[in-house]
Write a protein that binds this DNA or RNA. Structure first.
Lengths: 229, 229
DNA sequence: CCATGCTTGACACTCAGTGACACAAGCGGC
DNA sequence: GCCGCTTGTGTCACTGAGTGTCAAGCATGG
């Protein structure tokens, strides 16, 4: 792969069913075609997560994943933009609505409050499905190639949060350091929590990420709100 | 490529001359072989930066870069672990001594002060060589593949800063959120400054990064020092 | 002069990722 | 019922990154 100027997989291009969600039933798609797509997608992620967790990222080829899922290599790339994406989209999908969530917060709310809520969304989801999410998070954090991709996604989140914050506060995202700085701080907290969660008690993940993020924001809050007292 | 468990290029494996520095003469290596190595390395980075800045990351092949520099593709990969690394190492090399710098700060210093100095090092270097550094930074920030690699490097910095901070404060980097959180905040400031610097006045880069980072840390300081008053 | 070690180029190979084309459903109109 | 149309898929061929191997080339030290 490489830069992917504006490419990406041809995932349901009509009423975009959103990032492929893996196992959870959730709001099932309606059309037959959509359900078929969904089926193949989950089959692929399932196969990928199992194989990769078992043998490591490098020891598994895309061909293997595809064949295990019962499709061709070519079809794999019609669902995911890269080998890394099968794993990362699992996490990244959860963060996609951060911006929406931030935009939905009441206008007068302090930045620290609003950001805390936005960032909490994916973390509480993780916490609620720890059995599925924890192995994935661990795999990502300890595989350089996956980490790089994940951070790339995160950079997009940061961009989104920056824009949204700038809009909320009536500031210029270019000329003013604060919006990007605040977004970065929120994501730093996110990362710290993710690390702590994945490392704590190498057995079954320790404290609830929802609680940890609150702890982190207690430290951040004074700085986050210092610009709008 | 992919995960690179512990691989990397066979860069001077004897008394490792450190990351290949590009043009600056600096403390020239002594041995003849070392100087030859250095020469090839700078030739490669020079060729790469020129071609990539001109035609974009995807439109240039490693073969081209190598041939332009007068060596073979195989030799390219003996100097750089990946196509991205030619560009990124330029920046990443500067950040490598962050940890050393942090460790060298007086023990009693407030975390915000110590971190500010550590993070300032690469930024002031950038500011001092803006004519060379700015195009590279812009290229990295707007090329997803390069950004991903750069963030991967930064993750290593964060790890280093985390360890060092934990040591300084006598805390446990695993159980305690604060060290990683503080390191993340410092790097968030770093990123914000880098963005601001690269975007400000699309002409020639605006305010001095050294000044910008001070501005950012003015916001961060209360949070950074809140744990050790 | 010869042995040793380091660097390089040439070659072959794996694997990620893409483009092109042909083929098989599912579906609406007539 | 048949005809198009769209959509998803497999096959094939191809580019380009990255690696292993081997056989020179060229410095050094004895």
């Amino acid at each position: 792969m490489s830069t992917r100027p504006e490419a990406g997989p041809d995932l349901g291009q009509a009423p975009d069913p959103g990032p492929v969600r893996t196992p959870g039933p959730g709001p099932a798609p309606v059309s037959l075609a959509q359900r078929k797509r969904q089926l193949v997608a989950t089959e692929l992620t399932e196969a990928a997560l199992q194989l990769l967790a078992l043998r490591g990222f490098d020891a598994v080829t895309v061909d293997e994943i595809a064949t295990t899922a019962g499709v061709s290599k070519r079809t794999f790339f019609r669902y995911f933009a890269s080998k890394e994406d099968v794993v990362v989209q699992f996490l990244a999908g959860m963060g996609a609505d951060m911006r929406t969530d931030l935009a939905a917060r009441p206008a007068g709310e302090r930045p620290s409050e609003a950001l805390l809520h936005a960032v909490s969304v994916p973390l509480t989801i993780c916490g609620d499905h720890a059995d599925r999410a924890l192995p994935v998070v661990r795999l990502i954090l300890r595989t350089p190639a996956l980490l790089a991709r994940f951070l790339e996604h995160q950079a997009r989140w940061r961009e989104d949060l920056t824009q949204e914050l700038a809009a909320r506060l009536g500031r210029d995202a270019r000329a003013d350091l604060y919006p990007r700085l605040a977004a970065g701080m929120a994501l730093a907290a996110f990362d710290a929590v993710l690390h702590r969660w994945s490392e704590g008690e190498e057995a079954g993940g320790s404290a609830d990420p929802g609680a940890l993020i609150g702890e982190a924001f207690a430290v951040l809050a004074p700085a986050l709100d210092s610009v709008t007292p």
